[in-house]
């Protein structure tokens, strides 16, 4: 790691104030991506603003008809929350699939969403559940939030405070892991809310998380595995690497989508 100034913020407001004052500072949430990147000297922020003591960024609650999760809520807390399991079991399920137990004990939903790793799990949930990302400044619909590889609509110094998920009627997440890193080679989150069906794909897209419109159209007609017969993803625009080329990823999108729909209907 390169040297940096360490700062601790006890509240979201203090964090934002510090970000305004410090030059070239980054927020440190769970650190499960940022710190390995810094260790490899691929990132060199001049300062870190540690959010781990900011109690007002933590917590899970129902607000109206939305499940609202604080940005510093750790994966383990989402995975094991009775409230999440009751309201959006697919989200608890997804949180329990991130990394490994020790990583889930540190990693946070806000950190994952702000980082927007193209193979991360939460972006798929946000997109498919039509979540709203609430920052210290504004509310950003998920459709407008994820703008590319490791890129989001967040401005400098803007802090995710919480994420609000409308409750779906049915939802499920299926993930095919990279055998080495265990990140998603393909992760598909399907969600049905009223007539609206959304299918979000992570891990596969060369430009990050995306919605699979042909899958959505087919499932809107009928939310059933059979509706996906003959529906496939195109290989163009998908990642290729030593573990999975674009054609294989395209195939896996179909498989994971079918399995996710079956799982969603089984609940």
């Amino acid at each position: 790691m390169y040297a940096f100034n360490y700062n601790r913020a006890e509240t979201a407001r203090k964090a934002v104030n510090l970000a305004g004052k410090l030059e070239d500072a980054k927020f440190l949430a769970g650190g499960q991506t940022l710190l390995p990147t810094m260790k490899q000297r691929l990132a060199s922020p001049g300062g870190l603003i540690d959010l781990s003591a900011a109690a007002d960024l933590k917590g899970i609650e129902m607000k109206g008809r939305n499940l609202v999760i604080g940005a510093m809520t750790r994966h383990v807390d989402v995975a094991t929350s009775e409230l999440v399991k009751e309201k959006i079991p697919a989200l608890a399920d997804l949180a329990g699939m991130i990394g490994d137990p020790a990583v889930r004990n540190r990693g946070t939903i806000g950190g994952s969403v702000a980082n927007d790793d193209p193979a991360a799990d939460y972006p798929a949930a946000c997109l498919a559940l039509n979540a709203t990302i609430i920052t210290n400044k504004r509310k950003i619909p998920a459709d407008e939030f994820f703008t590319g590889l490791f890129e989001t609509a967040l401005e400098d110094g803007e802090l995710i405070v919480k994420i609000s998920f409308p409750l779906p009627n049915k939802a499920a997440y299926e993930k095919f892991r990279n055998p080495a890193s265990r990140y998603a080679i393909v992760g598909v989150f399907v969600a049905k809310k009223g007539k609206d069906v959304r299918v979000a794909v992570t891990g596969a897209g060369a430009n990050g998380v995306f919605r699979a419109s042909n899958f959505e159209a087919a499932l809107t007609a009928k939310f059933h595995v059979k509706a996906l017969e003959g529906i496939s993803a195109k290989a163009e625009g998908l990642n290729s690497d030593i573990h999975a080329d674009a054609a294989y990823r395209a195939h896996l999108i179909g498989v994971m989508a079918r399995r996710a729909v079956a799982k969603a209907n089984a609940k």
Binding site: P179, A180, S181, Y183, I242, H243
Partner: peptide, 18 residues
Amino acid sequence: VYDSKGQLITASFMDYCM
């Protein structure tokens, strides 16, 4: 796995599957 220029693509547990 090396690429054609001799860079080791699998240089961590992220890419080399243990």
